[in-house]
Design a protein around this nucleic acid. Structure first.
Length: 593
RNA sequence: GGACGUAUAGUGUAGUUGGAUAUCACUUUGGCCUUCUAAGCCGAAAACCCGGGUUCGAAUCCUGGUACGUCCGCCA
């Protein structure tokens, strides 16, 4: 709780100096108490014992006695060598009510600053529909974008389109050379397209890609095919406009289909940058010429070139190849050119990458450093696997995002119908769409990115406990209260505008809990953003919703037609904080459910 | 074989960078709907992979194991 810390530290410093502690080390020892009953902040006094020649218990007691009265401080106590300090609930209330935590206009939105941040995420190869594994990148990345915006940062969400290379070439070749009969014959009814997605190019065209993959293995003329594809790849890497155009014609509908899936999850991008532009504009070849002048530059027997990053401390395989024997560039080389370009338009770069890209990212980072460029921040995440094992399109062991979202919506719909048989279809649909997609997102965001994640239908579709619908429900309740007030003829706006509303003498547990949660909200947001760990904020939002539910139980706002102004104001603050926070995580803040 | 990551109640997870009685949810279990939405609230039970070390104090740091994941292409 930074607010309390700001008040407490100067007071503690004076007191500590009085008893003979002069170092500043204690600041890092001041920690949040485990038990809220004991306090909000605690100072363990054991390290002072040696220095002062007194027992920790004695020191804690001396400090508790010496700490001056302050409106921010509630109970101050010494327990077993710990100095425990509790915030005064009335002070918390005044902080919350008097804009102390209302940051900006939107209760929790910080004012914008001049940081220009570019977050690149997803950047999936446009050759097939999203499955839940690939979606972790998009959900994590988009959440990071949203949280930065909530934090007041200027962010650009960027998708790096892989519009060259073998995968796209295979897709383009297949679309030009294979009839749909051939495709179906080759795939032999395997993993047929869900009729629901029959118009969707990401689901349709991936079959051409898969058929081509099979044909490249088996067909009698596979050498010629390979040659043809190789020629296309080669031409694209030398900037052949016609070939690049044919690639784009092949992948663009697929990409559009994939993006529409993401859109359903509330994920969108500001800019799309095509990999090929760094080849056609000469950046890549200039870069490769520059590498030649490096002292760690090396050449293989067939003329392929590399940088020996071992000389810069890279362990394992130290040769980082940036040019093939035939003179063309490699993916990583283009990625470096891309990063140099990105640095020209922003002062912070964040990439969201799967853990399989760790080595690659390291090589790119070291090379950028070698070039005198800054190294981007990277958020790595571990893969999502299925209970049956690794997710693999080839083995048919996949859960497509489109299917998951459809199922989530259907199950949410069943829940709504059971709970509210009176709701009209249209309302049921909008609630279940919001609840279903939000649940899927939240289920993925709430766990630490570097944790391996096993996808389970029951968990993705859990609508209670620590889920998105749980938060949405709390928010909808708060909205319902406001509606009730309006219905009772109360001017909500006018009551919210009232100042100097007296803080109640008796504050129920639920109210204090809510105030305390609100007071740490912005601390947690900063940490989640700065450490690139969105799950911290997801947990904070759960805490906020839980606190609100306790408050809701303990504190009536409208009782026998009487309005409690203080409670209304607090409820509205919490409601707005929930709303902006939900938006920050991509949870749809519907007002009724 | 090497590099990097992970290991917490029956299950899934949090742990603010070394502090007290380790978080939350599911499951199990006892209560709460004639007052603002019970997708809710209040309670019970249940865990730090195994050895060593560092120190007043270790889930957290060091070290040695074990298990799992990822990578170690002139692929993207």
């Amino acid at each position: 709780m930074q607010m309390l810390r700001d008040v407490l530290e100067p007071l503690l410093e004076a007191v500590l100096q009085d008893i003979g502690v002069n170092s500043q080390h204690w600041r890092s020892m001041l920690v949040r108490s485990r038990e809220h009953d004991q306090g909000d902040l605690s100072l363990p006094c054991f390290p002072f014992a040696k220095e002062l020649g007194k027992s920790p218990i004695e020191i804690a007691e001396t400090l508790a006695q010496a700490l001056p009265n302050n409106s921010a401080l509630g109970q101050v106590s010494a327990v077993a060598g710990y100095l425990n300090i509790k915030a005064n609930p009335e002070w918390l209330a005044s902080q919350v009510m008097n804009n102390g935590v209302r940051i900006g206009d939107a209760f929790g939105k910080k004012p914008a600053n001049d940081q220009q941040i570019l977050i690149e995420h997803t950047s999936a190869n446009p050759n097939g529909p999203f499955h839940v594994g690939r979606a972790r990148n998009a959900i994590l990345g988009d959440t990071l974008v949203r949280l930065h915006r909530l934090h007041g940062n200027n962010v650009r969400a960027e998708y790096y389109v892989d519009d060259m290379g073998k995968q796209v070439a295979v897709l383009a070749w297949a679309l030009e050379n294979l009839s749909s009969e051939e495709v179906e014959k080759t795939l032999d009814q395997k993993d047929t397209v869900n009729p629901k997605w029959s118009g969707k190019a990401d689901h349709e065209r991936v079959r051409w890609y898969q058929a081509a993959q099979a044909i490249r293995q088996d067909r009698s003329d596979k050498e010629e095919i390979e040659e043809e594809i190789g020629r296309m790849v080669h031409a694209s890497e030398h900037g052949d406009e016609a070939v690049l155009q044919s690639f784009q014609d092949a992948y663009q509908p697929v990409l559009d289909g994939m993006l529409s899936t993401l859109e359903r999850l509330g994920i969108s991008f500001d800019t799309f940058t095509k990999e090929s532009i760094f080849v056609t504009n000469g950046d890549v070849s200039n870069l490769m010429e520059k590498f030649k002048t490096f002292e760690i530059h090396g050449v293989a027997e067939n003329g392929a070139e590399y940088l020996d990053l071992g000389a810069r401390g890279l362990k394992g395989k130290t040769e980082f190849f940036f040019r093939r024997g035939d003179g063309s560039s490699l993916y990583a080389t283009r990625d470096i050119a891309y990063h140099i370009w990105k640095w020209k338009q922003s002062n912070q770069l964040i990439n969201v990458l799967g853990e399989d890209h760790k080595l690659q990212a390291k090589q790119v980072g070291m090379t950028l450093a070698e070039l005198g460029e800054k190294v981007p921040d990277v958020l790595f995440y571990s893969f999502i696997k299925l209970p049956e094992g690794k997710m693999s399109t080839r083995k048919g062991n996949v859960v497509y995002m489109d299917d998951l979202l459809e199922e989530a919506q259907a199950q949410a719909s069943a829940v709504v119908r059971e709970l509210h048989p009176d709701y009209p279809d249209e309302l049921v649909n909008s609630i279940s769409e919001a609840a279903g997609t939000s649940a899927v997102r939240f289920n993925i965001i709430k766990v630490s990115p570097d944790k391996g994640f096993t996808f389970r239908w029951e968990e993705a579709l859990a609508f209670e406990g620590g889920s998105a619908p749980f938060v949405m429900y709390s928010h909808a309740r708060a909205c319902s209260i406001a509606r009730k007030c309006v219905g009772a003829g109360i001017d909500v706006e006018a009551n919210l505008a009232k100042t100097n509303v007296p803080v109640p003498d008796q504050m129920p547990k639920g109210m204090v809990e809510l105030l305390r949660t609100i007071c740490v909200h912005s601390d947690v947001l900063s940490k989640a953003v700065n450490d690139r760990r969105p799950h911290l904020f997801a947990n904070q939002l759960l805490q906020l919703a839980t606190s609100f539910n306790s408050f809701y139980r303990d504190c009536m706002i409208l009782q026998d037609g009487e309005l409690n102004v203080f409670n209304l104001q607090l409820s509205e603050i919490a409601r707005n904080l929930m709303r902006t926070s939900m938006e920050g995580l991509g949870i749809v803040p519907i007002e009724q459910m």
